[in-house]
Design a protein around this nucleic acid. Sequence first.
DNA 1: ACATGTGAAAGAGTTCACAGCC
DNA 2: GGCTGTGAACTCTTTCACATGT
Lengths: 236, 236
Amino acid sequence: MPGAHRRPRLLPEPTIARLPIYQRIAEELVRRGLDTVSSDDLGRLAGVSAATVRRDLSSIGPFGTRGSGYDTAHLSRRTAELLGGDSTFPTVIAGIGNLAKALINSPLFGDRTAKIVALYDVDVDIVGTYVGGLQVRRLADEDGTSFVDPPAIGILTCPASAAQDVADGFCDMGIRALMTFSPRVLEVPREVTVRYVDVSIELQILTYHLEHGRGPLNGGLLHNLGVSPVRVALHP
Amino acid sequence: MPGAHRRPRLLPEPTIARLPIYQRIAEELVRRGLDTVSSDDLGRLAGVSAATVRRDLSSIGPFGTRGSGYDTAHLSRRTAELLGGDSTFPTVIAGIGNLAKALINSPLFGDRTAKIVALYDVDVDIVGTYVGGLQVRRLADEDGTSFVDPPAIGILTCPASAAQDVADGFCDMGIRALMTFSPRVLEVPREVTVRYVDVSIELQILTYHLEHGRGPLNGGLLHNLGVSPVRVALHP
DNA sequence: ACATGTGAAAGAGTTCACAGCC
DNA sequence: GGCTGTGAACTCTTTCACATGT
């Protein structure tokens, strides 16, 4: 029977990219003891339009109440769940410089969602040292026997010249998600997701706008979604 | 969206975001002594379609030659110029931790396009110290008298809790371009461009894809443009 | 023959506007 | 009255397809 089979619909990529923002805000609102939030207020806090908020939230399974707004606790729970907050993804990092240390010392990687389980480098002065409680090893020496669970996320903070080799090594280890800080397009198998965090590109986008007289569009949050946050008070 | 009054722009934002990639590749091709490149090859190297390459390049002033391809030297020059490569933008950084040090020590900031001219922090152990040849000062003490040219770019590597105050301070200094690493939506005057580099969001996008099985879409480069680079040889 | 440049079509995402419900 | 949920309109971007030029 045509149409009877309901496939779990993927969310549009821009919506996925906004979920972490909603999550962060909902968590904060719960912390402040606010039970509900309107699409209008949430939109202002997230820097997107109320219509976009309603479209996004209705697509992750409506839980708003007409007349009052969205339940902050429910919103927080649902977004956290969608973003994999209930799972733990073993994470490895290659290229242990200042940037890697900044990441390792940040609150991003606890034992919660992404847990760092291995550090790699090639520099003889760095291999063998301990950073954040883990001994730095050589990626080439990795045989996978030391992992309790196989790594799921790989982070590249290595020089651009090494990026493709490291990415190949990570993919061979079975990693399915890469975040790279190297200014380099990576070629990976189709089933691997790659996120590029490219500061040089960001900087050049800024200089483009400076060079061409301003951009009224404060885009950029969530990847150029055309967001233009305005100064907002939670309770005007 | 409220407050998002957009004026017609010279180039579409996604095209602007791809310019740095074309720039980087064109530079590399010139270095390798290749005089021309086809939209097909350039697309594979940049991880976008040939049609997109042709649309982008034709919109920045056609300089391809039918039958042979694009002149790499010309392409490199034109993109560099569009991206402000001929100007120097004084840049300041607030929040001098590992991340800031990684940026300061990176080749991104020379005397070329973005030149770092001031460092700020509030920590008494950090204020007064020298990092990369500059003495860290307090943003609150800044009266602007020490600048030869007024700063154009502000970078926030401070804790999220301080981000809005720092952004306010930067905007008061007349800065028109911000890059922030704090997980926080910034509210700034309309004429200020903001780029968000939010590792926690990137990480959560990865965990979303891991949680929901596959993502054949290796999007992310240039902000989720739906790019899916495949392994490519320059001259097959 | 080959590759660009570009109208036209398609696709993706956002915003409008209002019906529906609290 | 207020606010969500959603079909429809609209805007922006990409892709197609081929005329155009070398």
